[in-house]
Nucleic acid binder design. Structure first.
Lengths: 210, 210
DNA sequence: GTTTGTTGCGAACATTTGTACCGCTGGCGG
DNA sequence: CCGCCAGCGGTACAAATGTTCGCAACAAAC
């Protein structure tokens, strides 16, 4: 019995979350009843009590729509960063986000993911060419615009000669540059400083496609 | 006249915001009445209508506590999901989050990352044993607790015989189960249904270490 | 002064909504 | 078979709550 939630309870929980997202206030018991195809308000009430016993929700008695999802309640600042383009073979990116393109896509991220940087932007990865960097087709990378970086930073670099942009770990090594893929089984790539142009430093990535 | 708000309207606006922060649901008209020392509910209603005309709030008629604040559309909630443990070789995880462990870690994620699921939890990946699934040491995976899954789902499965938990893509294949790593160059793993126990379905992952 | 529009007040009304009560059912241990 | 009980259905009630209407005070416009 202390096992998983019943199907009904799971549906209720999901519905409350969805309702909260769509409207900006919690659902009433009858909203839940209809939304989850439950025949009676008492059943909803019963299951809500069970959910509250487990601490999965919190309710204020006698008050309408007083359902709170603990953990989801804390309203922290959420950042909306623009998706400035795609990163794949070729295609140098207009690093400084001076002007935002028309109708650009946006992603919502937490502050953790931008590491506090104010002017972060995102790029969508196209193709599997960066699978060696643990980044797959459709993923998003969050970057901080910069032209320089320290050794060991994960950066988006434009390789002029190869005319391609990739994500690699960056190392000064004597008079040349070592670009190290993330996967330790992959071989590093060496080139001259003239050939690389740092476009941005990767702050985090979002895996969005499986 | 489109200038400043009346003192009363400003107070109402402030109060709604404060109320929303403290509780996690909007105030009722009578809550506002008391909180702002207004003598009648009709006055509150009157001023709310004015505020709505200016687009400073949004209301759904006939619905209690249906007051939405500015930026209602963009204001999304941040979810805080518990990090229930580590996933690595061995260590079956107590899938259902019945009781949260003492002092468990938490991560903040956007609703995108939980795909709307209310009781998602996170696991920290330890070691590089899942590098083949594009998941590295220190990364976090967000899961939805479940005991069953569909073909193609990315799931955390406990392999009884091997006594280890891993992340794989799940496929029924005749009388056996095929567990497919993400990286297409890796070989699938076959086992019997008796040997696998689905612990949770992966919703997304967070790359936190480079 | 009269009119008009805004704002405030109070009360009454109709819904919405949380909760309680009663009964039914199906599994389960004795 | 019997009792127990979690879970579900249906209903009713009362509290919570949004809405409406009439009236008054006040200021600006006429």
């Amino acid at each position: 019995m202390a096992e998983g939630l019943s199907d009904k309870q799971q549906r209720i929980l999901d519905f409350v979350g969805a309702f909260l997202t769509e409207h900006d206030y919690p659902p009433s018991i009858r909203d839940i009843q209809q939304g989850c195809d439950i025949s009676s308000t008492s059943v909803v009430d019963y299951n809500l009590k069970r959910l509250e016993e487990r601490g999965l929700i919190h309710r204020d008695r006698e008050i309408s729509r007083a359902i709170q999802l603990p953990g989801s309640g804390t309203r922290r600042r959420i950042l909306t960063v623009p998706v400035l383009g795609k990163i794949a073979a070729g295609l140098p990116i207009p690093t400084p986000p001076e002007v935002l393109p028309e109708g650009y896509e946006e992603v919502e991220v937490t502050e953790d993911q931008t590491r506090g940087r104010a002017n972060a932007f995102a790029l969508r990865v196209e193709g599997t060419s960066m699978i060696d960097a643990l980044i797959n087709d459709g993923d998003l990378v969050i970057l901080e615009p910069t032209n320089s970086c320290d050794d060991g930073d994960m950066v988006a670099v434009w390789l002029k000669a190869e005319n391609e942009t990739t994500l690699k770990k960056f190392f000064h090594e004597g008079s040349r540059i070592r670009l190290q893929p993330m996967n330790s089984t992959m071989q590093p790539f060496y080139t001259s400083p003239d050939n690389v142009e740092v476009q941005g430093k990767v702050l985090s990535s979002i895996r969005s496609a499986w």
